[in-house]
Nucleic acid binder design. Structure first.
Lengths: 129, 129
DNA sequence: CTCAAACCTCACGCTGACGTCAGATGCAGC
DNA sequence: GCTGCATCTGACGTCAGCGTGAGGTTTGAG
């Protein structure tokens, strides 16, 4: 597969794929003309990269856990600590997100419930003609 | 309270507090000499700001929801949509984080379980004297 | 063989939440 | 008044994950 097809199927930009390669997350082969040639599993791999990035992992950490996520053999020795640290960070972040979501829900509820004193009508502002 | 004390109690930097003011999230009064003077509730307010930032809200959105989070009266009219959008984003992010956490747990389990073929000893690397 | 589309390599730009340094006050104890 | 620490206002630096040209090459259909 060429880069454009991978990009489309994985839902990322061509630029992103080149960036991932620069970060040593992908290593496509090259054609005689110098163009990138991706293997079959690449789309799945890119999606996993996106997921890990979305969870806030750094490129360095993605590089470390990616082989394990794709079942590509053992990981570098002694990196379990950073994984545990990262797991803790993710836990905290989930807690933060959950709390904020609850707050937002309350605010949305108040703003949507017409019987509440702080209610604002979604279309017309209250009190004005 | 002066800025240094607020910073210490809220666990943020002095620079961060000035930045929050620049973003119109705080508006401390000034002494005759021009120094910032914070009210009593400021520490709590700053912690809430941190929480909202930690959940990935932008300064603009923090500015919008903060009054509602601190029970400071109604919010600007017609901003419920952005809250709902944001809520959806947070939901997706929690899902991503949870999935990644599960992955990390699996990897950590394998790396910690001595009976697993991919096991690496936590202290000494396997296979070397 | 031609030509357009896709691809290539630099390399600078962008955004947000601050860090950091410079140089100039303000404030409190003595 | 002096000293020393806290604070002040700019204003530039940082870092990550790409976006966005510029200018040139490769590919493959016709």
């Amino acid at each position: 597969m060429r880069i454009g097809e991978v990009a489309e199927q994985a839902g990322v930009s061509v630029r992103a794929l080149r960036y991932y390669e620069e970060q040593r997350l992908l290593s496509p082969t090259r054609t005689a003309g110098g163009q990138r040639e991706y293997q079959d599993g690449s789309v799945e791999r890119v999606k996993m990269i996106q997921l890990l990035y979305a969870a806030g992992l750094s490129s360095r950490l993605v590089r470390q856990v990616l082989p394990r996520c794709m079942n590509e053999g053992p990981s570098p020795v002694g990196f379990t600590d950073s994984l545990i640290t990262e797991r803790a960070r993710i836990d905290r972040q989930i807690n933060d997100l959950t709390e904020v979501r609850t707050r937002l829900d309350e605010i949305i509820a108040v703003a949507t419930d017409p019987s509440h004193p702080h209610h604002r009508h979604p279309i017309r502002a209250a009190g004005n003609a």
